[in-house]
Amino acid sequence: MCGRFAQFETKEEYLEFLNAGVEFVGVLDGEPIGRYNVAPGTRVLMLNQRDDKLHLDPVNWGYQPAWAKESGRTPMINARVETAAASRMFKPLWNTGRALIMADGWYEWKKVPGDAKAKQPYFIYHQNKKPIFLAAISRFHADALDAPDEDGFVIVTAASDKGLLDIHDRRPLVMTRKACLEWLSFDTSPEHAEQLALDCGIPADEFTFHPVGKAVGNIHNNSAAIIKSIENPII
């Protein structure tokens, strides 16, 4: 799964690394975004394409359509790549709301055998320490003065394999640069987007990870210190 991630570089660095070749609409101020502990329920800069141009919009991380709210279901923050394209909840988002979440890495908690309450957090990132782009699907009204309660996004997740399985059995779907550009394009059909999601994720063996302190568990902690490796993790 993906329940916490980091998004701390400048907008320019993410966009330059993506090298989309598509006009960007917005202000690039050169200031680091500076979010080392992005949590569900907060507004996050989401990259999306509208009218053949790229936009960055602050959108709530979490999705709860009216029918789900009425039935008492909690907001969803992830969608499984294996089922999202066809599910009742996520199919409309998949068809018309594909987006990307810029990130520098994400966090997972490894369970301690025999102690259900003890978990060791890890920070996972690309081995070259470059930006990554998480596949997302969304519903939002870009031009609305007051965003409807239903507006939000979820991060698409895939099964972990190789070394990442040691930490958690799910991970965010991190797409290759070429796949990212096709994923965003309105010329890409939902069916082709499904193939991209299934076939064009960056392999797990390109990522690495290290243990971090328990401070990341508190969403009020937001500094570069929380991504630093610690010695003597509990597991």
Rank of each mutant, 00 (worst) to 15 (best):
E13K: 15
P190N: 07
P121N: 05
L184V: 04
L18Q: 04
L18F: 04
H210W: 10
I227T: 14
D29R: 12
P92W: 05
D187N: 11
T83P: 05
L93F: 10
A118F: 07
D149T: 14
N60P: 05
D29H: 04
R80L: 08
K110S: 10
M1K: 07
D146V: 14
I202G: 05
N232W: 08
G201L: 00
E108R: 09
E82M: 07
K228P: 06
M102L: 13
P121Q: 09
E16M: 10
N19P: 11
V216G: 08
V59S: 02
A159T: 15
K119Y: 00
D146Y: 03
R80T: 05
N48A: 09
G217N: 14
Y107E: 06
G21Q: 07
N222D: 15
I227R: 07
V212G: 07
H192W: 10
A147F: 04
H55A: 00
A204C: 11
V38H: 08
N218C: 10
R35Y: 04
D115Y: 01
E194N: 09
K130G: 03
A79E: 06
R139W: 07
I33E: 08
F24V: 11
L173K: 01
P121F: 08
M102Q: 03
T157A: 06
E206Q: 12
V59Q: 04
D52G: 06
A116H: 11
D146N: 11
N128D: 14
H168G: 08
I137A: 01
D143V: 03
L54A: 02
F123C: 00
S185W: 07
Y63R: 11
V44H: 09
I202D: 03
A142Q: 07
A68N: 12
N37W: 01
H126R: 12
G34V: 02
L196W: 00
D115I: 03
T157H: 00
S138R: 01
M46Q: 02
K53G: 04
T74P: 06
G41E: 11
E70R: 14
Q49F: 01
Y14Q: 11
T42Y: 13
I101S: 01
T74C: 11
N218M: 15
A118N: 13
G72R: 09
K162T: 10
P92V: 12
L54H: 01
V112R: 13
V174Q: 02
K228H: 13
I234L: 14
A193F: 03
A99F: 02
A204M: 00
A142L: 02
A193W: 02
A193G: 07
G72D: 08
A39E: 12
L164I: 03
K91R: 15
K53C: 05
F140N: 06
M46D: 01
F90Q: 05
M175L: 15
D166S: 10
P203Y: 06
F17H: 14
P211K: 03
V38S: 04
Q195S: 10
P211L: 05
N221Y: 14
L165V: 09
